[in-house]
């Protein structure tokens, strides 16, 4: 963020399953902390990263915090665009219905609740990625 006041397009790219490594949780924390900086943020989930968003995670048996619930707070942090690659889901036997519902409330539209999760194909994701000023990989 070299020039003050310049809004940059940032994409966080998530490609690892949760719990086995620290990447998923670290990424989420960076997103939450970074949300204070008023940038144009979006998140992408591809490859094993799609497992971060599955519904019904229960970590009681592994003694770790179930941070999947925290993704549903992203709307409060004004992170409203979350892209999941369709090809990655399909390759893993998953579909949109296996994922948590993620929404945000649109301040400019009388706080109407809108979906923030978007399933996109490789071509669209490639296009979005190429448009970014900065890409953070996790």
């Amino acid at each position: 963020m070299s020039e003050e006041g310049t809004i940059k397009k940032l994409m966080y790219v998530n490609r690892k399953a949760p719990y086995g490594t620290i990447y998923a949780l670290e990424s989420l924390e960076v997103v939450l902390i970074g949300a204070a900086f008023d940038q144009d943020v979006c998140l992408a989930f591809l490859d094993d990263g799609v497992f971060q968003l599955t519904e019904g995670q229960n970590t009681d048996g592994i003694g770790m915090k179930n941070f999947s619930k925290t993704y549903t707070a992203l709307g409060d942090y004004e992170v409203t665009r979350i892209y999941v690659e369709r090809e990655s889901l399909e390759a893993r036997g998953l579909s949109e219905t296996d994922l948590q519902e993620l929404t945000y409330e649109d301040e400019d539209d009388d706080w109407a609740e809108k979906p923030s999760l978007h399933i996109v194909g490789s071509d669209e994701l490639a296009q979005l990625m190429a448009e970014q000023d900065v890409v953070f990989s996790f």
Binding site: R15, L46, D47, E87, S122, L125, A126, Q127, M129, A130
Partner: peptide, 15 residues
């Protein structure tokens, strides 16, 4: 790892 595969899938022409 599948990093190269995914990169080649998502890199745009002339990258």
């Amino acid at each position: 790892r599948n990093a190269l595969d995914s990169c080649l899938r998502l890199a745009q022409d002339s990258h």
